[in-house]
Simulated assay, not measured.
Amino acid sequence: MSKKEFAGAVGPTSHPNQLTYLAWAVGPCLNVYRGSTGITVSAWEIQRADTGEFVDRNFIPSRGANRREWEATIMGIAGVCERLPPTSTALIRVRQEELAEAFASGFRKTSGKPMAGQDFWSKLLVVIADKALRVSVDFAPEDDTFRTLKEDAKKEGIRQFDKLGEAQVRASVEVAKPKRRLRPGFDPVEGGEIEEPALILRRPNQFAGRRRLSANRKAMK
């Protein structure tokens, strides 16, 4: 649903004092190791749906390498809801289709059992109920707002990594049981040897993925 379609759909039926908003929420994860938890940053941007007026933009990094993108994005959605006036209507865009579907189902499986991350999504649902918000969460294609928000969030994550230091990051990381030999989640130091992957931490590099993409494109030419 486009911003124009959303504003048109909710505008005529909204309360005279009710404002409508469009928001983007992301939760990129800077993994210490692939398949592990990592340092995440819950980030969001809010605009007025009818005018495009900027309302709020914020970043909240995790206290350690102890979260996944699913939880961080839920916290980003909660951040949007906490900043909306009571009785507002909002369309929140995310890049995780399964998260949009989970929100629509009330974070319940088809069996009726609660989904993972209940500590996070239960708080989100409480905020929505307490403020009497009308919230829709939609999976949306990546646009300039998503790209900029994600890049800025990763910068915040790298700053958090440097602030915490290696000892605190190592203490908080949880590594899933690997099906194959672990590899660091970001580029190793050039020329470095990796003997015990589960004990070596590497500083995240926000440009690593961009360099790999550029190298792949050159190889295809």
Rank of each mutant, 00 (worst) to 15 (best):
K4S: 13
E5I: 11
F6P: 01
F6G: 00
G8Q: 11
A9T: 14
A9H: 08
A9G: 00
V10L: 05
V10E: 05
G11M: 06
G11F: 13
H15R: 13
P16G: 09
N17I: 00
T20F: 03
T20V: 10
T20D: 09
Y21P: 07
L22V: 15
A23Y: 04
W24I: 09
W24V: 09
A25N: 01
A25C: 08
V26Q: 01
V26W: 00
G27V: 09
G27K: 01
N31Q: 15
N31R: 10
Y33S: 07
R34E: 14
R34W: 07
G35F: 10
S36M: 03
S36C: 14
T37D: 09
G38T: 12
I39F: 02
T40V: 15
T40F: 00
T40L: 00
V41W: 01
V41E: 02
S42C: 09
A43G: 12
A43H: 04
W44Q: 08
I46H: 11
Q47N: 13
R48M: 14
R48V: 10
R48C: 14
R48P: 00
A49S: 15
D50H: 10
T51D: 14
G52R: 08
F54Y: 15
D56K: 13
D56N: 15
D56M: 12
R57I: 15
N58C: 15
I60W: 04
I60Q: 03
I60Y: 03
P61D: 06
P61N: 07
P61W: 04
R63P: 03
A65V: 05
N66I: 13
R68S: 12
E69Y: 00
W70S: 05
A72T: 13
T73H: 01
T73P: 04
I74W: 00
M75I: 02
G76H: 05
G76L: 07
G76K: 01
G79N: 05
G79L: 11
V80M: 04
V80H: 02
C81H: 08
C81N: 08
E82L: 09
R83Q: 14
P86K: 10
T87S: 11
T87A: 03
T89E: 06
A90P: 09
L91Q: 14
L91Y: 02
L91K: 06
R93Q: 07
V94E: 07
V94H: 04
R95C: 02
R95Y: 05
R95M: 06
Q96L: 14
E97H: 13
E98Q: 15
E98V: 12
L99A: 00
A100P: 04
A100D: 03
E101Y: 04
F103R: 03
G106V: 08
K109M: 13
T110I: 02
S111M: 06
G112F: 02
K113P: 01
K113M: 12
P114T: 10
P114G: 12
M115K: 13
A116R: 12
G117T: 09
G117L: 10
G117E: 11
Q118C: 08
D119V: 12
D119N: 12
F120W: 08
F120V: 14
F120D: 07
F120H: 10
W121S: 02
S122G: 08
L124F: 08
L124A: 05
L125M: 15
V126Y: 08
V126L: 11
V126G: 01
V127D: 04
I128H: 10
I128D: 11
D130G: 05
K131F: 06
A132G: 03
A132W: 06
L133S: 11
V137K: 01
V137N: 04
D138M: 10
F139N: 12
